[in-house]
Simulated assay, not measured.
Amino acid sequence: MADDTPSRSELAEDRTDLAEDRTLLANERTFSGWARTALATIGIGLGFHVLFGALEPAWLPRVIATIFIALGVAIIWMAERRACAIQARLSAHNIHTLRSLNMRLIAWVYTVGALALLVALWLIDGAATS
């Protein structure tokens, strides 16, 4: 009669595989959290410009908004680098993970959107005040 119960080492491997899967999912949640922080930072920059656009000199609210928007771009790229590095060290066993290419794509979309916002911030306001 064969014993179908898994050995201690097989159970330990299963626990390790599950822990690795949980770590990968936690990494994705962390990336998502940093992406939200980046969007919030970009939003703070835009909001600052809208609320304090009448400050003198006229370039001051734009510069402050630009700093916040640039900070948002830096945050998303730091999050992408960290998330991709962690994902490269681990391997999924029972889950489908977000691929590194998708995280990079998200970072690029945030960057292009932030740069478009900066261009609009500087050009449209400049055109309206002249």
Rank of each mutant, 00 (worst) to 15 (best):
A38D: 00
L118Y: 07
G126T: 07
M1R: 13
S130H: 08
R89T: 10
R36Y: 05
A38L: 00
E13K: 11
I75E: 07
E28F: 06
I69T: 04
P61T: 03
S130P: 13
V63Q: 11
T16A: 05
A85P: 13
G72Q: 04
T111Y: 03
L105M: 14
A92V: 15
R89P: 14
D3H: 03
A127R: 11
S130N: 00
L39K: 15
A88W: 05
L25G: 01
T66L: 02
E28A: 02
T30L: 03
A107S: 02
L39I: 11
R89C: 10
A92M: 10
H96C: 14
L115H: 09
A79V: 04
D14L: 13
G45I: 00
L71M: 13
L121K: 08
E20L: 06
A83V: 09
G43A: 00
I42T: 00
E80V: 04
G72W: 08
L71T: 10
V50A: 09
E80N: 06
A88T: 11
I67T: 05
I69W: 02
W59F: 12
I42M: 05
A88C: 09
A74D: 00
L123V: 09
L121W: 12
R29D: 04
L90A: 07
F52E: 00
A54C: 12
I124W: 12
L101A: 08
A85W: 08
C84H: 04
A83L: 04
C84K: 12
G126D: 03
D14H: 04
L51Q: 09
G47Y: 11
A58H: 15
W34C: 15
A83Y: 01
A116P: 14
R29P: 12
S100W: 01
A2C: 07
I64D: 01
F52S: 07
N27Q: 04
W59P: 12
A74G: 14
E13Y: 11
A26K: 01
R8E: 08
S7E: 02
L98T: 11
L71W: 00
P57H: 10
A92P: 13
A79C: 11
A35T: 11
I95T: 07
L121Y: 07
I69C: 12
A35K: 09
D3L: 08
T97H: 06
T16S: 13
I64E: 03
L121F: 04
I76P: 13
T23E: 00
A116K: 10
